[in-house]
Write a protein that binds this DNA or RNA. Structure first.
Length: 706
RNA sequence: GCGCGAUUAGCUCAGUGGUAGAGCGCUUUCUUGACGUGAAAGAGGCCGCAGGCUCAAUCCCUGCAUCGCGCACCA
């Protein structure tokens, strides 16, 4: 029997102070070695063959600092991991840092800008070294913040997205894709940001609704409509629907002479089903170099393509007198000229349409034709869809399943070339003569295998998501390592709903493609953490809440509870200080409960009814945990501890001296149940309880009902 | 345009085919030895609108409205 004749421990005489506890406790945990599953095997807490539970942490941006969303990630994942660890699973939570290619480069460019420098005048190798330095210097910061959140991840297995073994895996994947003819280099239209001087995948483009002028222009016998007159200089094809009776007198391939912006031209009639007869005049001219749909039409009919706008967004010599001008400024001047030439029929000033913009800087995307590496996604997507349809990979919340399947069905080829230095260099050679691209992992190609011309190293880097899309198997050391064999496929991928396509879908596709197995069995998606008014946090709005400030003010346990209670998966959460304060009070309540109980003697029998009631709670909580309903489990615990244990059971116990054993039993059990949610205070209290066996709460067995 | 969510107390949100729940806020009382970061009591809701299935609907079905999000877009 447990005994405590010394009365309350002195530490409980003052209110709970998270500051005095958290750092100390984390250190004890970390030094215990139990974040590493191998330690539990070594200490015989579990066996070598115990079932595994694996969670790979979404790699956090190494140069950033923890924001509220990360706080949520660390909380939810730590809850899952601590729960499974206590249940005796061989539990691995593998942390990682992300070089975050484009994101970091943009941050660094801003820094350069402040110093009056620009990346375009720094030699690429030097720039890379500078950013690497910058990133590594900052990475200690994020690691310590992850620790502050109480994350019980295995730091000994930490990975960085630029680690040699990761890069090696990524190269092997690229090679395999190339061997399987799933990767190709081709001149294709890409989304180009004139500010950042790089192309993007379709996911990195944001649609923005705008109201612009819509110009109806005379084009020989036709009227065409456009919102972008500045692109029209080279338009020499006029396209109409083959079934459009209004234009049936014109034949495909027919030439007509007409007066255009900079003088007379000869235009060719093209008939294509892509034209919408209902829209505008049902007739259009095309600019294949700078428009997706036009590019497709030109490809179908094998038409000439001509560049009108350069990479900086300036007009090329084809624009005649407007050459060298920025398109934004040139538009009005061009319209003026068109007006003077009598080529404008009418202008709709209220034209509502969608403009594609850079998700980072909002600059209007200028599509350009460029030679880049693309991945053929259809075959990969089909296999992924199948695994999702059959629920081999499940989604929480479920409706993300449909969203993902819909996206996979309509998937486009993925442009993985980025014109930035901060990333994994694409292992390929480009022929200087014919432009042919060759995958070259071993750096052994010196002549073009097509034309024999001189080759040069591709200067582009991979889209960050191409490498992070391989994260689950790359971090575990595919294909030969023991970790890979032990921990793959992983159990849960917990991440933000926002990056379901960017990251989750691609991990599924690449994971299946490379390993033949799904990378994880469950996708758990959390929503956004919003400010108290329900607005998205942003630096420009100045409403960013720093989780580190909150942990200092209220304690990490309180913050964790505030982040998890009432936060159903997939929906966003408005975070208020009031809510966190409520759980700070709860910490203190638990502290005082302990103080009272320690003043009692641990004797008597355990009350059967109370034990049954607690068993029922244990059952409920366990079921909630199994079903990822952490928001419910946390709330039930809060309610039981405060309003049943403290308000009723403890109050009643004051009338009866022989209830000590029951109180100790309930306290111990609730500490175990609460540990995944509030790890610091529960571990601290646990360490002060008189017990026969001194073991960390963290590796104490999860209660089962009896 | 297509799809997906949401709509419940003043606020933020849970939840259930059968008398509506939590936190915060609000009102009143309490200097009782664990805790005022507390205790006790209380006010506050046609569970968006209209139909349908059902003995019974806040919950299931249909439609509508409003808000949010995603996807696709026509020059």
């Amino acid at each position: 029997m447990l005994k405590n004749s010394n009365g309350a421990n002195e530490i409980f005489l003052s209110p709970y102070n998270p500051e005095k506890t958290e750092g100390k406790i984390y250190k004890i945990w970390e030094e215990s070695g139990f974040f590493n599953p191998d330690k539990s095997v070594e200490e015989k807490l579990i066996s070598k063959n115990s079932p595994t539970f694996t969670l790979i942490m979404p790699p956090t941006n190494a140069n950033g600092s923890l924001h509220a969303g990360h706080g949520l990630v660390m909380t939810i994942e730590d809850i899952m991991v601590r729960y499974k660890r206590m249940q005796g699973f061989k539990t691995l939570w593998l942390p990682g840092l992300d070089h975050a290619g484009f994101e970091t480069q943009v941050v660094y460019e801003k820094k350069l800008e402040k110093e009056g420098r620009t990346r375009f005048e720094i030699e690429p190798k030097k720039l890379y070294a500078e950013i690497l330095d910058f990133t590594l210097n900052n990475s200690k910061n994020i690691e310590s913040q992850i620790r502050k959140m109480g994350a019980s991840c295995d730091w000994s297995r930490e990975k960085f997205t630029l680690d040699n073994d990761i890069v090696k895996t990524v190269y092997k994947t690229f090679k395999k894709l190339s061997d399987d003819k799933l990767v190709y280099r081709k001149n294709r239209i890409v989304s180009w940001c004139t500010k950042h001087q790089t192309s993007f995948s379709d996911l990195e483009i944001k649609d923005e609704e705008r109201i612009d002028s819509f110009y109806y222009l005379k084009y020989g016998p036709f009227t065409i409509a456009t919102a972008r007159p500045e692109t029209k200089f080279g338009d020499k094809y006029v396209v109409m629907h083959p079934d459009d009776k209004r234009y049936s007198e014109y034949k495909d391939g027919q030439k007509i002479k007409l007066e255009w912006i900079n003088g007379p031209i000869e235009a060719t009639i093209v008939k294509d089903y892509a034209v919408d007869m209902e829209f505008g005049t049902g007739i259009m001219t095309i600019t294949p170099w700078h428009d997706n749909a036009d590019f497709e039409i030109a490809e179908r009919h094998n038409l000439d393509k001509e560049q009108i706008i350069d990479e900086q967004g300036k007009l090329l010599p084809i624009a005649g007198e407007f050459a060298g001008q920025n398109i934004k400024k040139a538009r009005l001047l061009i319209v003026e000229k068109l007006k003077n030439k009598g080529l404008i029929e009418k202008v709709d000033e209220n034209y509502k349409h969608v403009v594609k913009t850079c998700y980072k800087c909002g600059t209007v995307i200028e599509p350009q034709i460029k030679s880049q590496w693309f991945i053929k996604m259809k075959p990969l997507a089909e296999k992924a869809s199948q695994k999702i349809e059959t629920d081999e990979i499940k989604y929480t919340p479920e409706h993300y399943k449909k969203i993902t399947l819909h996206w996979l069905e309509n998937i486009m080829d993925w442009n993985i070339s980025r014109q930035i230095v901060w990333g994994i260099p694409i292992p390929a050679k480009i022929c200087g003569k014919c432009g042919h691209g060759m995958v070259d992992i071993e750096n052994e190609i010196s002549k073009c295998n097509k034309c024999g011309g001189e080759v040069a190293q591709d200067t582009d880097t991979f889209d960050t998501w191409f490498s992070s899309g391989q994260w689950p198997f790359a971090t575990l050391g595919f294909p030969d390592s023991l970790d890979f064999k032990t921990f793959y496929p992983t159990d849960v991928m917990e991440t933000a709903g926002e990056i379901i396509f960017f990251w989750v879908a691609r991990m599924i596709m690449l994971g299946i493609y490379i390993t033949g197995e799904i990378p994880f069995k469950m996708v758990y998606l959390h929503g956004l953490v919003l400010d108290v008014k329900g607005l998205k946090m942003s630096k420009s709005k100045g409403n960013v809440i720093d989780p580190m400030v909150l942990t200092e003010k209220f304690g990490t346990d309180a913050l964790r509870m505030a982040l998890v209670v009432g936060n159903t998966p997939g929906t966003s959460l408005a975070l208020s200080e009031e809510k966190i304060r409520a759980y700070k009070h709860f910490s203190n309540k638990l502290w005082n409960i302990t103080r009272f109980i320690l003043s009692r003697e641990n004797k008597g029998d355990i009350d059967h009814n109370l034990k049954n009631e607690l068993d029922q709670l244990t059952k409920d909580i366990t079921l909630d945990m199994e079903n990822y309903r952490f928001y419910l489990a946390a709330e039930k615990l809060y309610h039981y501890i405060w309003h049943t244990f403290a308000d009723k059971i403890i109050e009643e116990s004051k009338k009866d001296e022989h209830t000590g054993a029951t109180l100790y039993y309930i306290l111990q059990t609730t500490l175990k149940l609460l540990h995944p949610f509030m790890p610091f205070i529960t571990e601290e209290i646990w360490s002060h309880l008189p017990q026969d066996e001194k073991k960390l709460l963290m590796v104490t067995k999860w209660p089962t009902e009896m």
